[in-house]
Simulated scan of single mutants.
Amino acid sequence: MTTASKPRSAYEKWQDGIDKAAGNAEWDIYDCEIRMAINEFDRHLSGTAGYFRLDWQLVKAMIWVETGAVSKKWRSNPMQIGNPGDPGLTSFLTGNEGGSLILPPVWQGRLTVGTASSFVSHNIRAGIGYLLMRMANFAIKNVPDTDTRTYEVTVKVGDNLDKIARTQGTTIESLRQLNPGAHMLRPGQVLKFRKAAMRKVIVGWKFITPSSVATYYNVGDSMYAKKLDYALSIIRKGKAAVCTQ
């Protein structure tokens, strides 16, 4: 009597598909698009605190996990962002959560819900942008205006720092920096100010690893980090595509 073999798990079957992807040109067709997109984000975000270059092969592994060349979505929506009922794309494009700080200026207005769900180049940038938005640490801070001139305003009856800041296009923080002794205002007092505003800014970044991608990008797949690790190990062994600049 022979012992029946143990049925293969869903994860093992998925691994079989990834193993077959190695060396299959169809699974590598987005290499240059991914690298081009990451270069755009890198140039845009390189000046933010603590930013480090995104690993393009990790993004490729995300695409392999999200869809893969055998999926119907491979030719339109490989990163799966923008699917019906998925709030990720909307949250990124509205800018309420900081997406407008992440998306390179050249894509502002070009990348939409419609295009991100239909065109691969847009979908890849939407996925990368959403990932970076989730990995960024934001804070509301005093941001000086491009107008660096120092102005003066005379305090009137009923004025306070908040009222003066709002009417003069500056912030309480900026007023206090230029007028350290202005704890109690009096009519006739002259205050210095510079144009400024309180805005959301990027103050740092989380480490981007398969585990953190699974936490902040993916929802619902408990095996996501494990799959990313496996896909990435296969991709690392392959040859990188030669891309023209």
Results as ranks from 00 to 15, higher is better:
A4C: 05
A4S: 07
S5R: 02
S5E: 14
K6M: 01
Y11V: 09
K13E: 15
K13S: 11
W14L: 04
D16I: 02
I18Y: 14
D19F: 12
K20E: 14
A25H: 07
W27E: 03
W27Y: 00
I29A: 10
I29N: 05
I29S: 13
D31Q: 04
D31T: 02
I34V: 03
M36K: 06
A37C: 02
A37F: 12
N39Q: 04
E40W: 09
D42S: 14
D42R: 04
H44A: 01
L45H: 11
S46R: 03
F52Y: 14
R53I: 11
D55G: 05
D55P: 02
D55M: 07
W56H: 11
W56I: 01
L58P: 00
V59R: 00
K60R: 13
A61Q: 05
M62H: 07
I63F: 15
V65M: 06
V65H: 06
S71C: 00
K72N: 06
K72W: 06
P78Q: 01
M79G: 04
G85A: 10
P87Q: 00
T90Y: 09
T90C: 03
F92E: 05
T94V: 07
N96S: 06
E97C: 05
E97V: 08
I102P: 01
P104N: 07
V106N: 05
Q108G: 07
R110C: 07
T112K: 09
T112E: 13
G114V: 01
T115N: 11
F119K: 01
S121K: 04
N123Y: 02
A126Y: 09
G127P: 03
L131C: 11
R134C: 09
M135H: 14
M135Y: 14
A136F: 15
N137I: 04
A139D: 14
K141D: 15
N142G: 13
V143Y: 14
T146D: 15
T146V: 12
T146R: 12
D147P: 06
T148E: 13
T150M: 11
T154H: 09
V155K: 00
K156C: 06
G158D: 11
D159R: 02
L161P: 10
L161Q: 11
D162W: 15
I164C: 07
I164T: 13
A165N: 04
A165Q: 02
A165K: 03
R166P: 08
T167Y: 10
Q168F: 09
G169I: 03
E173Q: 10
R176Q: 13
P180I: 12
G181Q: 06
G181M: 04
A182S: 14
H183A: 03
R186S: 15
P187L: 06
G188T: 04
G188W: 14
Q189T: 12
K192T: 10
F193S: 04
F193Y: 14
R194K: 15
R199A: 10
R199H: 10
K200Y: 11
V203E: 08
W205D: 04
F207Q: 01
I208D: 07
I208R: 02
T209Y: 12
P210C: 08
A214P: 04
T215P: 00
T215F: 07
Y217R: 00
Y217A: 01
N218E: 06
N218C: 10
D221T: 03
M223K: 01
K227F: 11
L228N: 02
L232D: 10
L232C: 06
S233V: 07
R236D: 13
R236Y: 15
K239W: 11
K239C: 05
A240E: 09
A240Q: 02
V242H: 12
V242E: 03
Q245H: 13
